[in-house]
């Protein structure tokens, strides 16, 4: 592995991502968009859950908040480039507030608190018709049009014909790459180390001067802001949103992406979102059985590799290049 540098893998990956929709129809472009958007949301949850160890079942509701803010603003004529950062900021602030219960409750109880929040958001979206359009939701959001990304119409680029959906995919890809770079910088920075410290041993972390309260709130706020960014893409991609598209089951799907991919691994959510979104498409030929096969695969994976697909990968690497793993004979953690 060391012979081929990491950046070469990433470069090849980006080239593949750029080529992916070419020559494919509208449907494929939309599925790929959906994969990238969910990856962004799942990477946010991966920060909150995988790195900082705070469970959240509300990531879908942050996609909702981001999508509705973007929809309302762009429908009233605000440019997407302005609406998007506002959606991210809005979710950052709401995420910060949702983080407060996490200062008091942990684990299962925190899961329930966030679950309740998700339900609350869906109810508000459904009941406040005057703002959100109620059960009918919002539709016909304009697609962004700036610089290379005139996503509203079809055109040709280097004599390759590109549909509106394909161009939307390239916008998603651009946003995703910038977002992934920022996320990578965050994880590598001392902040990333502090988040891991919060996950692994909050009491020791606090005694080493880390403000665990602030870290917990930030973990929620940043993770939620990523959900908002995903929502800001959902709005112009799908061009139709309604409360049910962000109900609890979608938060659970995002959680599934994080867990299946490998929680706490940087590329885990990309893989997890691919499995959760693309695998059902591949299994379509099995018709009615696809859900059964799909659930079966997830159960088998979780039994044999609780650290997800990335965990399987690192086990294979470890078999080739032996590495020390954390031992199980010592229970860690500070108990007073």
């Amino acid at each position: 592995m060391a012979i081929i540098p990491k950046w070469a893998f990433i470069l090849v990956g980006i080239v593949l991502l750029v080529l992916a929709p070419i020559g494919q129809g509208n449907y494929v472009a939309l599925i790929l968009c959906s994969w990238l958007m969910y990856t962004i949301a799942a990477m946010g949850l991966n920060l909150t859950l995988g790195y900082a160890g705070q469970i959240s079942l509300a990531q879908g509701s942050f996609m909702a908040i981001g999508a509705y803010i973007t929809a309302l603003l762009t429908l009233s004529g605000v440019h997407w480039l302005v609406a998007m950062p506002l959606a991210v900021l809005g979710c950052f602030i709401v995420g910060l507030l949702v983080g407060f219960p996490a200062l008091r409750v942990k684990g299962h109880f925190l899961a329930f608190v966030t679950l309740a929040f998700n339900t609350l958001v869906v109810l508000v979206l459904r009941n406040e018709d005057w703002l959100t359009g109620g059960s009918y939701g919002k539709s016909n959001m304009p697609r962004p049009d700036f610089w290379l990304f005139n996503t509203g119409t079809k055109s040709t680029f280097l004599s390759i014909p590109l549909s509106s959906n394909q161009k939307m995919y390239y916008l998603c890809l651009a946003v995703f790459i910038v977002f992934a770079l920022l996320m990578y910088g965050l994880i590598r920075s001392p902040w990333g180390r502090a988040f891991k410290g919060l996950r692994e041993n909050p009491i020791r972390a606090e005694s080493l001067g880390l403000d665990t309260r602030r870290l917990t709130l930030l973990a929620f706020a940043i993770g939620s802001a990523a959900g908002g960014l995903a929502g800001a893409l959902v709005s112009p991609v799908v061009q139709y949103i309604e409360p049910n598209s962000f109900a609890l089951q979608h938060s659970l799907r995002i959680l599934l992406m994080v867990v299946v991919g490998g929680s706490g691994f940087f590329f885990g959510p990309m893989l997890g979102a691919a499995v959760v979104i693309l695998l059902p498409e591949f299994l379509r030929f099995t018709e009615g059985y696809y859900l059964i096969i799909y659930s079966g695969l997830v159960i088998v994976l979780m039994v044999y590799s609780p650290s997800g697909l990335m965990g399987v990968g690192s086990r294979i690497v470890a078999a080739v290049r032996p590495k020390r793993v954390a031992r199980t004979d010592m229970k860690e953690g500070a108990q007073l």
């Binding site: 180390r193 891991k196 410290g197 954390a326 860690e332 500070a334």
Partner: peptide, 16 residues
């Protein structure tokens, strides 16, 4: 009780 960050390297423990 032993109180380290088990999933981090020794170096990262110390830097943290």
């Amino acid at each position: 009780q032993l109180s380290v960050f088990p999933e981090m390297t020794v170096l990262d423990n110390i830097i943290l």
